[in-house]
Design a protein around this nucleic acid. Structure first.
Lengths: 137, 137
DNA sequence: ATTACATATGTAATAGTATAACATTAGAGG
DNA sequence: CCTCTAATGTTATACTATTACATATGTAAT
């Protein structure tokens, strides 16, 4: 996980805790774990896990970040309109995570489960891959 | 979660711990949590979390069960050839989980991420839905 | 401005999920 | 029988997440 400097000036309607958590995830770009976030933001005044989890919950609810379930981590949303739909590739070797762009996904996904006559409210798709650089080496 | 009686005579190559854990999941048909499994199998001689997790790990590796990441639960595999690929619908209201049959999935899934030129080694798909009976009521 | 309400905070304690480390035992081949 | 690998048993501990409760903050209506 990498170093972080806070630059962004948006996210104005958020509360302080929500903002610093979002900034951290934004500047990192990588998936981060709740307790790593806690440690990173101790100096900003975050003292307890609950403060982190509450901020994370809210940011997930707002669609600004996503939770990657299989690695208990949170990552900034790279799309604009995911809502609570998430789709990631995760490299099995190096752990690198990329969000899959929604464009070609939404349709395929609805086709996918259409036969079941079930109303999909949201989805979480985790594709384990070998990323390009790991495939080479 | 429901009561359990051990009937199955297959699973012969498994060890005792693996077998009783698999039997429990088989007879239940529902997703079960590790510590619930532990409690349920205390009388069969399972004493520690690690015994459960080791059995679960092995069964996942063998493709006999799946882990549903977003609910930290394990469920018997209903297909024959999932390998480590999993796809479920989860009812947001009642929590009921169903495995999606592989047939119409594999193709769509490979189409889905084809553009990325990434080699998918396995996937975990979690579709949150309103199941039929919950949609009615 | 004051009230009222919903939402967010701060803090401490605890619940729930999972693994590390290490000594021992059981099974499958040679 | 010997050897090697995999599984077991046990204790301790690490990691992930929530409950409960008291306090503070923001917003909108009076």
């Amino acid at each position: 996980m990498s170093s972080t400097h806070s630059h962004s000036k948006k996210n104005q309607s958020l509360t302080k805790n929500q903002r610093i958590v979002l900034d951290l995830l934004q500047n990192s770009g990588e998936p981060l774990k709740a307790y790593f976030i806690l440690d990173s933001l101790k100096k900003e005044g975050l003292n307890s896990p609950l403060q982190v989890y509450r901020a994370l919950d809210k940011l997930v609810e707002l669609g600004k970040i996503h939770k990657i379930e299989s690695i208990n981590s949170f990552i900034i949303c790279n799309n604009s309109n995911c809502a609570s739909n998430t789709a990631f590739t995760i490299c099995e070797r190096c752990g690198k995570v990329k969000e899959i762009k929604n464009k070609y996904l939404k349709d395929s996904v609805s086709d996918l489960v259409k036969d079941n006559q079930l109303e999909i409210t949201r989805y979480n798709l985790e594709f384990y891959v070998l990323c390009k650089s790991c495939k080479i080496n």
